[in-house]
Design a binder for these strands. Structure first.
Lengths: 123, 123
DNA sequence: TTAATCATTCACCCTATCGTTAACGACTTT
DNA sequence: AAAGTCGTTAACGATAGGGTGAATGATTAA
């Protein structure tokens, strides 16, 4: 594994239901690690690992509670979500392009319904 | 594993670098399975499994080539990407709420004073 | 100082996933 | 019909990911 890209790590992190649940929950407000473990009926070590994954991808940030330095409060960070949106925008631009490409393609293949219907298997 | 949600499956599918590479490649044009296996220097069975995952999440669609029924041509499908965007929009609305108005979800938050750091945890 | 609490890392299972080769079904070609 | 091609499923080994309980470090409470 040649050091996965940031997008790799972001998507892997969000692919886990627990971690996505944590993200959803952090939308409401920041939470201490212990609260999250309890909320998902999970042992503290298990949640700690999930939080580490989220932290390493930059999806959440850890802060020491001002009133009790034992407590670590987690909150969302926007950057990885923005990056994911950027990739998604790129992918979805495919269909916009397809509308334009449809005209061009329709010239070459008169009669076929969709753009890029198979063509040759050679490049 | 209580039947993962559609979003679970979509994110898991896209978390794999190979599968995301396939998606990126299909943005250019539809491809036969064999071309994809070759492009990623991977055995046909391995690619076939990746394509099945993508197909099961609805990210790609399989079509029999009109000229050669042995060839299966894969192309992108928009729905799962739109669903992912929907979730991403929800998550990112978090920051809009923070900037705009906390009154929007002030109705749901009981007693807690805004996004405060301190937490009264305790079970 | 001693005890209790919060969260982490460490050690270990256990399952899921990815890759390979071999075998198969479907289609095309000669 | 026989051989060749494309892509799949089947069976297997190797690896990574996620769960637990025990031990550790840091902080607070008594």
């Amino acid at each position: 594994m040649a050091t996965p890209s940031a997008l790799d790590r972001t998507l892997s992190a969000l692919a886990d239901p627990t971690r996505r649940g944590v993200v959803d929950r952090l939308r409401q407000r920041p939470h201490p690690a212990g609260e999250l473990a309890a909320a998902f009926d999970m042992s503290p070590p298990a949640m700690s690992r999930h939080l580490r994954v989220l932290r390493q991808t930059g999806l959440v940030e850890e802060n020491i509670d001002a009133d009790d330095a034992r407590v670590r409060v987690y909150r969302l960070r926007p950057e990885p979500f923005a990056a994911l949106r950027g990739w998604l925008d790129e992918v979805e631009s495919f269909w916009e392009d397809q509308l334009g490409a449809f005209k061009a393609h329709a010239e070459r293949t008169r009669g076929t319904k969709g753009p890029g219907t198979s063509g040759g298997r050679k490049s």
